[in-house]
């Protein structure tokens, strides 16, 4: 925007030029906005497409993958739920995921308490170590766990999976619970002590109810981290015990059928429902 002080007659052409510039400017701005909106729209489409495409595919009538599907049917869901291999893998993974959720949530919450509220020697070292499984390539961890578990007959084994997935899922719990504890006003715990509560009562009756959203979010992340985990599961599964991730990996690699689309849809729906529940719980807490 020019604000020059030239006498008026001299300014007129400038003003006209200014209008032209302003029109061009507005046009360029609108054009820029359209381009930006298009780019962002494409990126969002790119992000969402692969998740959503599995749903119509799972409803296909044909044996081969076709898009758009020529007719609608639930036969692939029927195939999924009646296949003993798929069902075994699903139940195995579900059991592991539930047990992992319990251990990771309890251990992660305890460790977060020790780090935020305690006097812990080597506290930052423990923090770095506990977050390590998020950073170390999962293939390295998978190979390493196979080497250790194989001679102990812990491959394809519930406890083997539980150990591996607990290590992988705990960082999520620690991150959410640490954040919740840092938002928590420590004066509330002192007030509880002052009212005559001991440490345990203060934790159960005052601290826990106030950090519950963080703990719940951590638990959901832990569940998904286990249930959707595939790389480590790929190595520590065997014929006797196969997780749903390993089963899917095999089938995508060797035997691409729309059953996988049905399984994928089930996984997507479970994930979205859990995340939605967490979101609603948080929104309710705030509102």
């Amino acid at each position: 925007m020019s604000t020059d002080l030239a006498p008026l007659p001299n300014r007129l052409p400038l003003i006209r030029g200014h209008y032209a510039a302003a029109t061009f400017h507005a046009f360029a701005k609108a054009f820029g906005m359209i381009v930006l909106a298009t780019v962002i729209g494409c990126v969002l489409f790119f992000l969402l497409l692969p998740t959503l495409i599995v749903i119509p595919m799972s409803l296909s009538e044909t044996d081969y993958i076709q898009f758009p599907p020529s007719g609608l049917s639930l036969k692939w869901y029927r195939a999924y739920f009646s296949d003993p291999d798929w069902m075994a893998a699903t139940w195995f993974s579900l059991k592991i995921a539930l047990a992992t959720t319990a251990t990771a949530t309890i251990m992660g919450t305890m460790a977060a308490l020790a780090i935020v509220r305690g006097r812990l020697p080597f506290s930052s070292a423990l923090q770095a170590l506990a977050l390590g499984p998020m950073i170390v390539p999962h293939i390295v961890l998978g190979v390493a766990l196979y080497l250790v578990f194989s001679p102990l007959q812990l491959t394809g084994n519930f406890f083997g999976f539980l150990i591996a997935h607990t290590v992988l899922a705990t960082p999520y719990v620690m991150i959410t619970v640490t954040a919740a504890l840092q938002r928590f006003d420590p004066a509330l715990e002192l007030a509880a002590l002052n009212c005559g509560a001991n440490r345990l009562q203060a934790f159960v009756l005052v601290v826990l109810p106030n950090i519950a959203p963080g703990v719940a979010a951590g638990a959901v992340f832990a569940f998904l981290a286990s249930f959707d985990e595939a790389t480590v599961a790929f190595f520590i599964s065997d014929i006797g015990g196969k997780s749903i991730g390993r089963k899917m990996f095999e089938d995508i690699d060797f035997n691409l059928t729309p059953v996988i689309a049905a399984v994928s849809t089930v996984l997507v729906v479970v994930s979205l429902m859990l995340m939605g529940a967490i979101h609603l719980a948080n929104a309710q807490k705030r509102g």
Binding site: L47, L48, L49, P50, T51, I53, V54, M57, I65, F67, L224, F227, D228, A230, G245, M248, F249, I252, L256, I260, A261, S264, L267, V268, S271, L272, L274, M275
Partner: peptide, 15 residues
């Protein structure tokens, strides 16, 4: 997508 299993997304890309 973040909370969709990596397997599902990889499968979608294969398809």
């Amino acid at each position: 997508p973040l909370w969709t299993s990596v397997l599902v997304r990889s499968y979608a890309w294969v398809v």
